[in-house]
């Protein structure tokens, strides 16, 4: 879609309007509800800003662990792959498969240098 304002710009305008034109005139339950809506819009906007990068990084990390081929075989879409690989990793962690290097990726600075 090349139409402007694009989805990011429309979302940003919606969030601004809610915060500047709607919220100040509300109080009590209605204000709380509007604040929640603003928070939800903000989360969506940040996810759009981040683009496909975070999913890509997740799959790259899984490729490092399981190999590129296995990542490809794990599902059709990015979402399906992350879901399936997370399930595998979760059950392996639970079974104790990583006990010896449990802190490896979490302690990159002091302990493992």
């Amino acid at each position: 879609m090349a139409d402007r304002p694009n989805r990011e710009e429309l979302l940003a305008a919606a969030e601004e309007t809610l915060r500047e034109a709607v919220l100040p005139s509300l109080d009590g339950q209605a204000k709380y509800a509007a604040l929640m809506v603003a928070a939800a819009l903000g989360t969506v906007r940040r996810e759009i800003d981040a683009g496909a990068g975070s999913s890509r990084r997740t799959l790259d990390a899984y490729a490092g662990l399981y190999g590129e081929d296995n990542v490809h075989r794990s599902g059709q879409t990015v979402e399906q792959r992350i879901t399936a690989l997370s399930r595998d990793l979760a059950s392996e962690i639970r079974a104790g498969a990583y006990d010896r290097s449990l802190l490896g990726p979490v302690l990159p600075f002091s302990k493992f240098r």
Partner: peptide, 16 residues
């Protein structure tokens, strides 16, 4: 419905 490796990891750490 989904799995959460980070939570499993923290639980395993607590196990140990």
């Amino acid at each position: 419905p989904q799995a959460y490796p980070t939570l499993e990891w923290a639980i395993r750490w607590m196990d140990l």
